[in-house]
């Protein structure tokens, strides 16, 4: 009886390890600093996680499809700069700036998808190169200048980042709605099923008549769409942006996705798990700040989290923690 209990508890730990770790962490930090679970603080964390979260939704598709997207950080800078610049351009204005920015960002995603899906190039190389290339593109576009909206009271553009509806901040609302929508696309549609098949075993997908290139291409389009949405929130929240606003976000996004339990080998993961991963990352970073550590500690912590998450994932698959290359 007791043994069966231990076993089932162990089983829950193995399957829901991330959630359990999250709860332990939350309780621990609450003892450290009770402000941690203050309603205001919790909502603050969720609100500040929205941009990262929206990006992570798209990257989840790419990762389940068996690829990586390291270009999302500089793509975010690009979309924020572009939308702000077009907003200030009298020929566009906010109503045209937004669709124009989406179109341009989707083009970048299409380039990723074309190179990886149709030319079958390695996704790590392609998107790492794009990280650098898009950064250059952004600087070329902006001439190195930061972008600001001059007359902030004369535009409704701040609604995406600063507005709220039904008492919920708009960024959180966008994150939640997009997560629900993409969660359904991934879990319930034929396309979602194909993403899992292509990432799980590409050869078997080909043998099943699945157009692999198109599926991979579409995962990058989805990723770019999410980045554009995140860029819109970012630009609208600060009503201005630096050329480097998204720098380093690609690793945080990846950390959140892995933390949620998507395998870097492809074929596993869900949108729900990614949302959990995003929140865990957000709360950890918040907890560290409340504990009085400097913000740059989080760069180190992000790395530690990636390593821990990958290690635990592999360890549950292998059934042991210690497994040197033999």
């Amino acid at each position: 009886m007791a043994e069966a209990m231990v076993k089932s508890v162990g089983g829950v730990l193995a399957r829901q390890g991330i959630l359990v770790a999250f709860l332990v962490f939350m309780i621990g930090f609450t003892f450290w600093n009770p402000r941690f679970i203050d309603i205001d603080n919790v909502f603050g964390v969720i609100r500040s996680s929205a941009i990262l979260g929206v990006m992570a939704l798209g990257v989840t598709f790419v990762v389940i499809g068996g690829n990586l997207d390291l270009s999302v950080g500089s793509m975010l800078s690009f979309s924020a700069i572009v939308v702000l610049d077009l907003h200030e351009n009298p020929a566009f204005g906010p109503a045209l700036a937004i669709p124009a920015m989406f179109a341009m960002t989707l083009c970048l995603g299409a380039l990723n998808g074309f190179l990886i899906g149709y030319l079958r190039l390695n996704s790590l190389i392609v998107t790492l190169g794009m990280l650098s290339a898009i950064h250059g593109l952004t600087l070329t576009y902006s001439g190195g200048q930061n972008m600001d909206i001059a007359n902030q009271s004369a535009t409704w553009f701040d609604v995406f980042g600063r507005g709220s509806a039904l008492g919920i901040p708009v960024p959180v609302l966008i994150f939640a709605l997009l997560a629900a929508f993409l969660g359904i696309v991934l879990a319930k549609t034929p396309f979602g099923r194909k993403v899992y098949a292509v990432g799980g075993n590409g050869t078997a997908a080909t043998f099943s008549g699945i157009p692999r290139a198109r599926v991979v291409f579409l995962t990058y389009i989805i990723s770019a769409f999410c980045v554009a949405t995140a860029g819109l929130i970012q630009a609208s929240r600060t009503m201005g942006a630096q050329n480097t606003v998204g720098q380093g976000l690609e690793l945080e996004v990846l950390a959140a996705v892995i933390l949620g339990g998507a395998s870097l080998l492809g074929g596993s993961g869900t949108i729900f798990k990614t949302v959990i991963g995003v929140l865990i990352l957000g709360f950890i970073q918040n907890g560290l700040l409340l504990a009085g550590l400097e913000f740059y500690v989080q760069f180190v912590v992000t790395w530690v989290i990636i390593i821990l998450a990958v290690w635990l994932d592999i360890a549950t698959k292998r059934g042991k923690l210690w497994s040197p290359i033999a």
Partner: peptide, 9 residues
């Protein structure tokens, strides 16, 4: 295993 099935599905 390589061509017929997605083993994780």
């Amino acid at each position: 295993k390589a061509q017929g099935l997605v083993l994780g599905m």
